[in-house]
Write a protein that binds this DNA or RNA. Structure first.
Lengths: 198, 198
DNA sequence: TAGTCTACCGAACGATCGTTAGATAATGGC
DNA sequence: GCCATTATCTAACGATCGTTCGGTAGACTA
């Protein structure tokens, strides 16, 4: 017997994912939750409040998921691999929510928008810190770590857009393939100086 | 003196980009175009028709942009570099439209949806063909070319989300950085067999 | 048993939605 | 000077939007 607020949130995630935030009505949510639309306002103060609740918990969970995964790791290579894995797995496991988080920020008021983007920027910052460290200590190729962090993050984020539960590859296989490809791209190639190799 | 249909399309691109398709009203478009909302229906049969027009021309242009850029190229490495560059530059030059194309497919009817996704799949197919060729002839590392094609495409697609006209890097620099990173990731690393190197 | 709180309901609010109908003014061909 | 076409207008349509209001059944508290 789950409480009604959770039910509302769950059906809202479903609707926002399928139809987008603005195309989903309060009455749609109410119908799927099995209550009258006015009852929604007992649990949430307005429509945007539902969206914010979804985005907020998603970002919180994403962040703590990363922190947990990074605990105890030392080298930049270990860390970036763990971060990539954490990011990919979260984006598969929480597919609907992260798709909403990526596409519905325009539904937020200015203050709420700032709250969410602040969390996103902090999260990105952790990836950038790892990359910078790896470049500085010579384990990664010299490159623009900010731009590359965007690249890595968006590449792994987009997994949520095409991942198919019944597809050919499991989430762990996808994480492994991407980790390998990205690490290969980050590490010094045969063409550059080979001080660290051989 | 541009014609009104183009004006409508231009302001619609602006609005859909800023506020999303469903949050933008016909009256918004009309106001910005300087006409009454009923006049919209002289040029477009309904709201979705405007969206489809935007997505359709965007996909057509994206495709012909790639075809042009690939002309005359032979090796997989040349081709994938050219394809990456074409993709990135297009996503910077047509920033607003590609963002709409990436997020507003849910606004289309089933038939229109099929038309657009067909074009997108054909486009993706060209990247996959190049990657497969490069893997088969030994110039790229053995990897899952479908998954990697998604990765490369989404990574380069997402440039449109963070690129800033007044930012630190020009579009050509970004294209160069990404090309370098991705090629490095695709080519055999120092750790694998080195038959092709030295 | 009276009062309070929780979780909902039904009905209505004004505003806006996408769309249509019919009128009109300007233009160009015959 | 007449007719058709083009491009726009005003006015209105029913439907739906997010939100608010007052009411109420049931559970818990004193």
């Amino acid at each position: 017997m789950p409480n009604m607020k959770d039910t509302i949130k769950t059906v809202a995630i479903d609707l926002f994912y399928k139809k987008s935030y603005f195309a989903s009505g309060i009455s749609d949510i109410a119908r799927l939750a099995g209550i009258q639309k006015s009852s929604i306002y007992y649990h949430y103060s307005n429509k945007e409040d539902i969206l914010f609740d979804i985005l907020n918990t998603t970002m919180l969970d994403l962040n703590s998921s990363l922190n947990q995964r990074l605990e105890g790791l030392k080298t930049a290579e270990e860390k970036i691999q763990a971060a990539i894995e954490s990011h990919i797995l979260f984006h598969i496991e929480r597919q609907k929510e992260v798709i909403i988080a990526d596409s519905e920020l325009r539904g937020l008021s200015i203050e709420n928008y700032k709250t969410i983007t602040k969390m996103r920027d902090d999260y990105e910052g952790k990836f950038q810190k790892i990359l910078k460290k790896g470049i500085d200590d010579g384990s990664f190729i010299k490159t623009d770590y900010k731009i590359i962090s965007y690249g890595i993050l968006t590449m792994c984020t987009a997994v949520c857009l095409w991942f198919d539960q019944k597809g050919r590859l499991s989430k762990d296989e996808i994480a492994r393939i991407y980790k390998g490809f990205l690490i290969n791209g980050l590490k010094k190639s045969h063409r550059s100086n080979s001080r660290h190799q051989e």
